[in-house]
Simulated assay, not measured.
Amino acid sequence: MTNPAAIFDDLAPDYDENGYHRALAETLVAALPRSGRPATVLDVATGTGVAAFAALRHLKPARVTAVDIAGSMIARARESAAVDDPTGVISWHVGPGVPAPVAGQSVDVVLCASSLHFLGSAALGDWLRVLRPGGRAAFTLPAAGHFRPSGVFAELVSPDLPIPADERQAAEVAVTAGFTEVVARRHETGGDHPKAVFLVHAVAPVQGASEAP
């Protein structure tokens, strides 16, 4: 039986070596609207913490909760935090990302870089649970045609979340879950091993927002 935590534990020592995940997280977070300082940010499947650290730089939140199933990933994140988060804004948690270890409607921003295709559609529902009305989610999805998982990684991909081929399909993942104001755009990287992903930004619905005053 595949053990996801053990698989990602094994990846931890070299996870940041090529800079791809750091650059992608930076792009994802930097694209969030600056509509005031968020009080709380949740980074789901944080890995080595690259999206959580990007949130500190771009969003300047009062508090960040970062969770990952792999203890070795969190250990690497804690090492980086000595420099990237000297005041301890981020709290690190080892455990499953779904359900997230936060209360309902307690979060202003949810981040998830490079992991939703492993977590599946249940993650989207959980983000709607934890987000305050009007809160924002920012996540990535791999692009069909560029995503070719093999071996144990193929076994980890959630069967209930379609891998999108274009921006419309990427946005539909969030729309179907119940998010509003969904924007998806394709993001490509070059080099010897080019990759393409979709960056998706969405808003948790506000009760009665569409009703006339």
Rank of each mutant, 00 (worst) to 15 (best):
G88C: 02
P4G: 09
L156W: 13
P38V: 04
L28Y: 10
E79N: 01
L59G: 00
D85N: 10
A100F: 11
D166V: 07
G19H: 06
F8I: 02
V41A: 05
Q169F: 02
R22L: 09
H58R: 12
A100C: 06
G104K: 06
L199K: 13
P33H: 07
A100K: 05
Y15D: 02
V83I: 10
A154N: 04
A170S: 10
D160F: 06
G178F: 04
W127Q: 04
R76Q: 03
V102R: 08
L131D: 08
T27C: 03
R34M: 11
Y15W: 13
V206C: 08
G19R: 10
A209I: 11
H93I: 15
V98C: 02
T87N: 08
G145R: 05
F147Q: 00
I163R: 09
A45I: 00
G49I: 15
L156F: 09
W127L: 12
R37H: 09
A45C: 03
R168P: 09
P159E: 11
G151K: 07
N3W: 11
G97P: 07
G134N: 09
V50C: 07
N3I: 02
A144H: 09
H117V: 10
A52P: 12
D84H: 14
P99V: 06
P13A: 02
R63M: 13
V203S: 14
H93M: 07
A62W: 15
V175S: 01
A39C: 10
N3Y: 04
V183T: 14
A196R: 05
D9Y: 10
E79L: 10
E155T: 03
I69F: 13
R148H: 15
D68Q: 07
E172C: 04
A55N: 09
P38S: 01
S72C: 08
R57G: 07
L32D: 12
V67Y: 15
V83W: 02
A171M: 04
W127C: 14
L128Y: 05
V50A: 15
P101Q: 14
A103E: 10
V107N: 00
E17Y: 14
D68R: 07
T48C: 04
I74M: 03
V44P: 00
D14T: 11
D192F: 04
A202M: 06
V182G: 03
A82G: 14
L11Y: 11
P213W: 11
P13N: 01
V41Y: 14
P142T: 09
E172A: 13
G178A: 08
L131V: 12
Y15T: 05
L11H: 12
P133G: 14
S121I: 06
G120R: 13
A39F: 02
L128N: 09
G49H: 14
D9N: 15
H187W: 12
L32G: 10
D16W: 04
T46K: 13
S210N: 15
R168F: 13
T180M: 11
A202E: 07
S80D: 07
T27N: 14
L161P: 10
F153N: 01
P101S: 01
V107R: 06
D16G: 00
G208Q: 11
E181Y: 11
V94Q: 02
A209W: 12
V157W: 14
